[in-house]
Each structure stands twice: as C-alpha cells, then as structure tokens.
C-alpha cells in the first residue's frame, strides 16, 4: 500500500518530531511512504482570512503536488488541514481542470488516526506510555471532517496510558489559524479557559491530533509557567511499540466503524 505523506506547513516549519513519528507508524503498518517535495500548505491561512483569490495558487499547487505520486492514499497529521483538502472540492468546483482533481484528492485523503482506524482497521497500535493524559479534540477534525472516534479508540488501547476526560471538550482552544494572531484579546480568553480545564484533569500529558492547537495551548501553558508535556497522537502511538500487542478490529468493531465518518 502506497501512502503519500501530506506533511502540512506547520510540521514542515516547526515540528519534525511529529512528521517523523507519523511516518514511522505508517511504515510499521506496512505502508510504503512518499513525500512529494513541491507540497506546501492547504491554503487555510489566506483562505480563512478572506484572501480567497490569493489562495488559488496555493490550493492548486497542493493538489498537483499531492497527486504527483501515484499512491493509494494521502495521509496527514492534522484533521484541520486534511479537511481543507476535502473542501477543495467546494473551493475548486468551478474549475474544469482542478474540479475533478480535487474530487480525486479528497477521495483518498485521510487524517492520520482516521487512516489507521478506518483504513488499516488498527485498534491497538502496540504502543506503551506510562502516563496520565488528556486529549484535546480539535474542532475541524470533529465537526468538519466528522472524525469523532478514531483517536479515542487508539488512545484507549495504549498500554499504561490513563486517559482523563477533558471538561468542555466541545469548546475551541482559541487557535483558529490567524484568528489567534489577529484577535489575540479574544483568543487569550479562550485559551486560558482551555489551559484551566487541562490543569483540572491533573494530566501530565496533553495529547492532540492537530499540532497547531497544541502549539496554542502549550504556548499558553509556557507563558503561564504551568507544567505540561504536549504530544501529537502520532508520537504517542510511536512510543515503546511492541508489535505483538498490535490488534486489528474484529467483526463487531468493524461494524461499529461503518458510518462513523459522517
């Protein structure tokens, strides 16, 4: 199975640890990976700010780059960015050349945990992490991509990991892309409540499936001088792996999976 690595600009610019962990997990499960060099960014920074015209080149470049390798799947470490790839169908619909390409792109693009769970049917990735942790559920992954289950199932099966539910899990952390930069006053109120909620769980580790949210929440933790370790879920699933623990979905779990990606 050939998988194109959709690296995302934030991972490319700041977080090699996240990209590396994702690639190692994917390869461990038998995927042959490829990373098209010309890929850059899904275009959300400009598109969501209203610079829709200026985003056209970015979106088309991403389509061409990610489709430049003939692969079965495209997998990225961000629910938000992967959702944007799906939304290209809407944003490029009127383009006779890129409209069909966008359809093709969307049909094989998956967020990392979604791919593990829904395509590879992994339930237990074989990881072990002796810690108390909580999970921040990112908005675009949950509401727009519609993935509400995969990360929770995978985390529930990490050996030694105690997961504490995060209060107000439904509320945004205040990142919102350039919202965090353009409206820092409001963003601060939001991220403060999120930090307080994380602190209230007593967790040592904050896990997420979107590194940008973690960059926001963790950045506020740092500014408030509160201790926390942040980990992208790919790093968690890449911790102390013992392949003998790996388990795939049984029939009952496969049935539960169907329809979960709304």
């Amino acid at each position: 199975m050939k998988v194109v690595v959709f690296s995302t600009c934030v991972v490319d610019l700041f977080f090699p640890n996240v990209g590396a962990a994702m690639v190692e997990v994917l390869e461990r499960f038998g995927c042959e990976t490829a990373m098209p060099k010309k890929q850059i960014c899904c275009g959300q920074p400009t598109f969501n700010s209203g610079y829709v015209a200026d985003s056209q080149k970015t979106m088309r470049n991403e389509v061409d780059a990610l489709l430049s390798v003939d692969a079965d799947y495209i997998v990225g470490p961000s629910g938000s960015c992967v959702n944007m790839l799906h939304e290209f169908r809407m944003h490029l619909a009127d383009d006779p050349e890129y409209g069909p390409k966008a359809e093709q792109l969307a049909s094989k693009s998956y967020e990392f945990t979604q791919f593990l769970y829904r395509v590879l049917h992994v339930i237990d990735a074989g990881a072990e992490l002796d810690a108390k942790a909580t999970f921040h559920r990112s908005c675009h992954m949950t509401r727009l991509l519609g993935e509400r289950v995969a990360p929770f199932v995978l985390l529930d099966h990490v050996k030694g990991l105690q997961m504490i539910p995060l209060p107000h899990i439904e509320n945004c952390c205040g990142f919102g892309g350039l919202f965090s930069v353009k409206e820092p006053e409001i963003s601060k109120l939001m991220v403060n409540e999120k930090v307080d909620d994380v602190v209230s769980t007593g967790a040592d580790i904050l896990i997420g499936a979107d590194q940008t949210c973690l960059m926001n929440i963790g950045g506020r933790f740092s500014r408030r001088n509160l201790p926390i370790k942040v980990m992208h879920i790919a790093e968690v699933l890449n911790s102390n792996v013992d392949m003998s623990r790996v388990r795939y979905a049984n029939e009952e779990e496969l049935a539960a999976m169907a329809g979960g990606r709304d």
Binding site: D12, L13, F14, P16, G19, A20, K188, R223
Partner: peptide
C-alpha cells in the same frame, strides 16, 4: 502577546531533511 511560540528547527534538522 498571549503565548510563547516555537522556534523553527535548523534546516538540517527539519522534517524534510529527516525524511
């Protein structure tokens, strides 16, 4: 103004180079 920001890695240590 609100939170600390990560410093980017050296180009010899970024994800593309790792890959």
């Amino acid at each position: 103004d609100v939170r600390d920001a990560p410093r980017p890695p050296k180009h010899t240590e970024n994800f593309r180079r790792w890959y």
